[in-house]
């Protein structure tokens, strides 16, 4: 058992989040996957803070949480207004920007 376990777990979680972004159509679920990716990064930050013996990693993880909160608020508002006009929360339906 070493800190490597945490880091590998974080990598796997990040990958699962990324794959979720790619395969899910529901915009809200896609958003959740992004949150999972942010969380996995936070785990690495906390782990490295412990490994290096400084608190800076934890502070940065704190900032990540704040930014994630702000992002969630704005992102969900955008999803709401798209849903209001499109009656759909599918990311595939917003595909006007193409060839």
């Amino acid at each position: 058992m070493s800190l490597t376990n945490y880091l590998v777990l974080a990598a796997v979680l990040f990958t699962i989040g990324a794959v979720g972004v790619l395969v899910r159509r529901n915009a809200i679920v896609v958003f959740m996957c992004i949150e999972l990716m942010l969380n996995s990064v936070n785990l690495t930050l906390v782990t490295f803070a412990r490994a290096t013996g400084t608190l800076d990693g934890q502070v940065i993880a704190f900032f990540v949480m704040v930014v994630a909160a702000a992002e969630v608020v704005v992102g969900l508002a955008i999803i709401m207004s798209i849903y209001r006009t499109r009656r759909s929360a599918s990311v595939d339906d917003a595909n006007l920007l193409k060839y």
Binding site: A18, V21, L22, V23, R25, V91, D92, A94, N95, L96, L97, K98, Y99
Partner: peptide, 20 residues
């Protein structure tokens, strides 16, 4: 060009795939 343009499907998930 239009062949290349076909890759611009407008689907954000395709672009995300490219990023990954």
């Amino acid at each position: 060009s239009s062949r290349l343009g076909r890759t611009q499907t407008g689907f954000v998930r395709s672009y995300a795939l490219g990023m990954l």
